[in-house]
Structure formats: C-alpha cells, structure tokens
Amino acid sequence: MMLSSVIRNLFSKPATRPFAPAARTAPQGYRGAVEFEEEVCIYCGACATRCPANAICVDRVAKSLEFDPFKCVQCGACAEACKKGCVQLQIDYQHPVAVRHTVAFHGPPKPTVAP
C-alpha cells in the first residue's frame, strides 16, 4: 500500500493550494465578516442582546451602534436576530489588520421642535 501511495504522491498534484495566488472563494452560506447597513438600522438592539461575545453595543436613546470586529466570533446570531435584515455575514473571512479598530455609526439627529 505504501509503495502505491509513494508512486501516486510522486506524480499527483499537491493536496494543498498555493494560498495567495490561488485564493479560494468560500461556499455560499459561509459565515464570514459581519457587515452592517447603517441606512436600514433602527437601533432596536436585538443584535446586541443576542451577541454571545458582547461585540455589539447599541444605544437606543442616542441611536448609535458600535461593533468590535475583534470580539466577534462570527456565529451569525446578530444576523438571525435582525428583523430589518441590516446585519449580514459576508462570504469573505475577516481580514487581518495592523491596528485594532471598531465600527461605529449613528442615526440622524432628532428633529428639533420649533419653540
């Protein structure tokens, strides 16, 4: 058996892929990096409540959301909880970066009532 393996492995292509030049795209439904559509968000906080890693922080009064991609475990609980469909998991994985950062956005300011 081992001799046949040796011969097979000598003449077959490598089992691994050359990563950078031939990067593979993940299959449909892959749980990659989390992205928010800030125009659609209503700041209800459903994603923050469900997040097991406490990566999302929503202020319902100030209408702001802060997301820490370095805490995120890409479980997809936020995307399932979001009724508006503004949280999506990308097919691509979370890329490494040099500086740690958070993603933050907020809603339009409340219209001021004329005196």
Partner: peptide, 12 residues
C-alpha cells in the same frame, strides 16, 4: 462542514 454549516470547525 464549511459547505453545509458555514464554518469548518465551530459549526454553530
């Protein structure tokens, strides 16, 4: 696992 559940190790 990656195809059916969306992740290789922690399939959730």
């Amino acid at each position: 696992f990656e195809k059916t559940a969306g992740s290789r190790v922690i399939i959730s």
